[in-house]
C-alpha cells in the first residue's frame, strides 16, 4: 500500500496546473467557455490519459481537481469518459431527470445520453431545444430539451460510465473545495477588523479549518474510489465495493464544494456577495455539479442499500 500520488502522478498534475494558470487565470473566468483554453487543455492530453497515455482514473482525478481549482467551464467529464469512442467536446443528458437539461450544448459535438442503455446523439441533430435565459451558473449555459433525443448505442456499460462520471465530477468538486479554502484563508490573513486580521478570530479561523477538513476527507475518498475503479478495470481485487466507493466520494465532494462555497462567502463578508469577487462563480458551479451524476441524497441511499 502506498496511498499518496507518485512523483509521476504529481508531475502530471503540476503540468495541468501550469497550463491552466496560463490559459485560464481567474480574470478570464467571467467570460465563460473559452475555445482556445479548451484546445490547450486537449493538447495537454487530459482527455487522452487513459486512451493514449495508458494511465487510469487516479491520474484523471488529479487532473480534474485542477479543472475545478480554476473553475473553468466546459463539458470535461463526458468528454473524458467517452474519449474511447467519440470526438469531443461531448456533453451529457440524464434522461431520468426532469427538466431535461444539457450543459454546454452549443460547445459540444455530441450528447452522451446516460439511460439504462447509453447512446450518443450528434449535438447538431437535436431539435427543439431552448437555451435557459437565466441559468444558475452564469458560465455554464443550459439547454432544455423537449424530449430525449435518439442516438446510437455506445460500447460501454451504463454503470461504468455513471461511476466514472460521478468520480470525475467529484474530482472537480474537490478542486473547487480546495480553491475556496485557499481563497478564504488568504482573505482571512489580509482583511483586518478590530485591528487584527479576521483570521485571528476563532469564529473565522474555525470556519477555515472546517473547510480544510471537508476538502481533505473528500479528497481521500476521491482518490480511494479512483484507485478502486482502476483496480477493477485491471482485473485486480478492489478493497471496497466500487459503487459504494464512488457514491461516498461524490457525496463528500458535493458537500465539500457547496459547504466551502457558503463558508467562503461568509469569510469574505460583503465582498463575498459581489459579482466582482469570483467566489460566487465557484459556488454556483458546485451547485451545478451537485445535481450531476447522482445527488448526495441519491448516493447516500445507494450506499445504504449496499450495506
Amino acid at each position: 500500500m502506498h496511498f499518496l500520488p507518485t512523483e509521476d502522478q504529481l508531475e502530471l498534475q503540476r503540468g495541468v496546473r501550469e497550463v491552466l494558470a496560463s490559459v485560464f487565470p481567474l480574470e478570464k473566468l467571467p467570460d465563460g467557455f473559452d475555445q482556445s483554453a479548451w484546445d490547450s487543455i486537449v493538447e495537454t492530453g487530459v482527455f487522452a490519459i487513459r486512451t493514449d497515455l495508458g494511465l487510469g482514473l487516479a491520474e484523471a482525478a488529479l487532473a480534474f481537481e485542477e479543472l475545478g481549482r480554476v473553475c473553468i467551464p466546459g463539458p470535461f467529464v463526458a468528454t473524458f469518459i467517452t474519449a474511447g469512442f467519440a470526438d469531443g467536446p461531448v456533453t451529457f443528458l440524464d434522461p431520468a431527470r426532469q427538466p431535461l437539461l444539457v450543459p454546454y450544448l452549443e460547445n459540444s459535438q455530441a450528447i452522451l445520453i446516460l439511460g439504462e442503455q447509453p447512446v450518443l446523439a450528434p449535438a447538431s441533430e437535436v431539435v427543439g431545444s431552448t437555451a435557459l435565459t437565466e441559468p444558475l451558473d452564469p458560465l455554464s449555459p443550459l439547454h432544455e430539451l423537449p424530449s430525449v433525443p435518439s442516438g446510437t448505442a455506445v460500447g460501454a456499460a451504463a454503470e461504468q460510465l455513471k461511476h466514472e462520471g460521478a468520480l470525475l465530477t467529484a474530482a472537480i468538486q474537490v478542486g473547487i473545495a480546495a480553491r475556496l479554502t485557499e481563497l478564504a484563508v488568504s482573505y482571512a490573513k489580509t482583511r483586518e477588523q478590530f485591528d487584527r486580521p479576521i483570521g485571528a478570530f476563532q469564529a473565522v479561523k474555525h470556519i477555515c479549518s472546517d473547510m480544510l477538513v471537508r476538502t481533505e476527507l473528500a479528497r481521500a475518498s476521491l482518490h480511494s474510489a479512483a484507485v478502486i475503479l482502476d483496480d477493477l478495470a485491471n482485473g485486480e481485487m478492489a478493497v471496497l465495493d466500487p459503487g459504494r466507493a464512488v457514491s461516498g466520494a461524490k457525496l463528500l465532494a458535493d458537500e465539500a464544494a457547496t459547504g466551502n462555497g457558503r463558508s467562503c462567502v461568509q469569510v469574505y463578508g460583503g465582498m463575498g456577495f459581489t459579482w466582482e469577487v469570483p467566489v460566487h462563480f465557484f459556488l454556483k458551479r458546485a451547485w451545478l455539479h451537485a445535481t450531476e451524476f447522482g445527488t448526495a441524497d441519491e448516493h447516500a441511499e445507494d450506499l445504504a442499500a449496499a450495506l
Binding site: 475518498s221 482518490h223 457525496l251 463528500l252 447516500a300 441511499e301 450506499l303
Partner: peptide, 20 residues
C-alpha cells in the same frame, strides 16, 4: 437510510484518510 448511507460515506472516507 440516507443518514445511515451518509455516515457510511464518512467512515469509508475516514478509513481512506487513515491510509493516507
Amino acid at each position: 437510510r440516507r443518514e445511515i448511507g451518509h455516515l457510511a460515506a464518512e467512515f469509508d472516507g475516514l478509513w481512506a484518510m487513515t491510509k493516507r
